[in-house]
Amino acid sequence: MSENAFLDVQDLKIHFKTDDGVVKSVDGLSFSLDRGKTLGIVGESGSGKSVTSLGILGLHRGGNANVTGQIWLDGEDLITASNEHVRGLRGRKMSMIFQDPLSSMHPFYTVGAQIIEAYRIHHKVSKSVAKKHAIDMLGRVGIPEPQRRVDSYPHEFSGGMRQRAMIAMALSCDPELLIADEPTTALDVTVQAQILDLMRDLQREFNSALIIITHDLGVVAELSDDILVMYAGKCIEYGTADDIFYRPEHPYTWGLLGSMPRLDREPTERLLPVKGSPPSLINVPSGCAFHPRCPYAELTKGRDRTEVPVLLDTDPGHLVRCHLSRTERRTLWENEVKPALETQ
């Protein structure tokens, strides 16, 4: 991956020691992201997507997590940097939108006070200037009557408005990297659409790098330039949005696509889900972690259980972690999987 990318993550590992054993939440993840681009990280619960985002922000420091690897943000290594230094970057250079805005805002403080606090930590300005800025931000994210609403408490906001306030808070210091962890999962579809539009517009305006973490392939397709599919702490497929949706090569990605009933196609008789359930991260299956659920595992003649597959280029910029050969995967996709998905 490119040397001078804005965000460059190399071989990131985040392991937690627990009484039952080591939980390898993130196990050797590498990706990079430029300003103005959007990366979608897709995976099921427990695949390590949220742990990755907290890791980038340095929020595992001081816990029992063991973080190794490299995270370069605009030429600075975040793993070796001091706590104070990372705290200075957080909010200003990198910021996060959390899934559940009600539990990530303080219920005793007004929404305005919380935005003002974040702004004044990074900017030496008076309270009244900061308040003006907070009102301006609330207006920018589409909250009606921001002058009045700045003094409301989080519980006085509806779910969609809370998420907007959360976005206003995250953007108050013009961060260059914005991580959104399931930003719309708690919202209704009509509000979700508004928030996705808002994030797209704001990203264009601020030219920030955006990482969007979700389990919803529809949300990813709406926003992302590149997509990273995670399974059991590892990246199993990486490519442009077109690669992942039109030329996916990993059986797990096929399974995800087959699991979704789609509004844009004629309804199928049956969905084509992945069998079984996601593995426990304490006891990850040997070899390819996906082998117990993979319908094509036998084609690898036993290698699926003994060898961990390597993430390899199948096309420039399109990486796949699978034992099947490129031709095998493409034949399967063209002849079996794609027709099955399209008769939907």
């Binding site: 659409a193 529809g218 990813v220 709406e222 949706f245 696509l257 979704m260 789609r262």
Partner: peptide, 14 residues
């Protein structure tokens, strides 16, 4: 409006 708000897993739909 509801139908049009549902995100569709197809980058072209954007």
């Amino acid at each position: 409006a509801l139908l049009s708000a549902v995100p569709i897993p197809d980058p072209k739909a954007r």
